[in-house]
Each structure stands twice: as structure tokens, then as C-alpha cells.
Amino acid sequence: MLHLILFSVFGLICAAAAVNLLVQSHPINSALSLVVVMGSLAVEYLLLGAEFVAAVQVIVYAGAIMVLFVFVIMLLNAGKDERTKGSRVSLFIGIPGVTIGSVLMAWVLITHSGTRSVEAGALPGDPRQIAQLLFHQFLLPFEVTSILVLIAIMGAVVLAARPEALQPTEEKN
């Protein structure tokens, strides 16, 4: 019961922060709303018994990636965005369309798929179990993913470096 109440409360916070992210006109407020979304998602993972994923969510998304977002906004000193009136089409067709679509999707998933709600803790969430899975059963995909990430990092370095830094330099006296 307590689980359900907490889960709904943080779900609501998450959705409210996501809406706030779109409504705010200042980029730093939007970035901070995204931090709240990430944080409440982490709490939801925790309530579902996925402790490791929750901790990683906070460390990686809320603590590292979003810090970089905020850092960039601070560095560029981005100001308030100009408000446009918004398009009529999105107001009268888009929002009802999205609402109806998501309700339909939820209804189909609940009634027609064989999945039932999973008990908290029924799936591996413990760091030890996740390590077992990652380093035994899924070792090859895991290593391939890390190589992919490494390539992405090197690509980022090449793209971000100044052109003269990539030229072979002569020894200076």
C-alpha cells in the first residue's frame, strides 16, 4: 500500500516536471525540471526493486549528464527564449491526439497482451545479480557496447579538437 502511494506520488511529480520542462521559457529552468524528472524516475526504479539501476540513473543522468547541460547553459549565458504563439494545429489536433493515442495504447497493453504487473523484486535488481548477468550471460554484447562507446568518445575528441591540434607537430626548441 505504502509502495503504491509513493509510486503514484513520484509518478505525478515526474509527469509534472516533464510538463514544466516544456512550459518554462528559461533554458536553465527546463534543465532543472529534467533533473527532477530523472530523480523521480530513479525513485520509481527503486520502488520497483531495481536498486542498481536507480543509483546509476542518479549518478549518470542527474549527476553527470545534466550537470553538463547546466554547464553549457551557464557558459553560453543563454537568456530567455522568445515566445511564439504556438500553432493552432498542435493545440486542437496534437494534444487530443496524443492523449487519445496514449490511452488507447495503455488499454491495448493492459487487456490484450499477456503481461501482468511484476511483483517488486521478482526481476534481478540487486547489483550482484546484474553483474552476474552482464559479465556471464551478456558478456559479448556488453563488451561490444563499450567499444562502441569508446569509438564515440574518440569521435567526439576528433570533432571537438582544433584542426591544428590534429596535425603532426614538429618539435619546438
Binding site: 536498486e51 543509483a55 546509476v56 542518479v58 549518478i59 542527474a62 549527476g63 547489483p127
Partner: peptide
């Protein structure tokens, strides 16, 4: 908690 260390790292990163 069984992820005490990760929680501390997460909080300090926030």
C-alpha cells in the same frame, strides 16, 4: 542499504 556506496556517490554528484 545494499547500495550504500552508490547512494553516497550519487548524492555527492548532485
Amino acid at each position: 542499504v545494499n547500495i550504500g556506496l552508490l547512494i553516497i556517490l550519487g548524492i555527492t554528484s548532485l
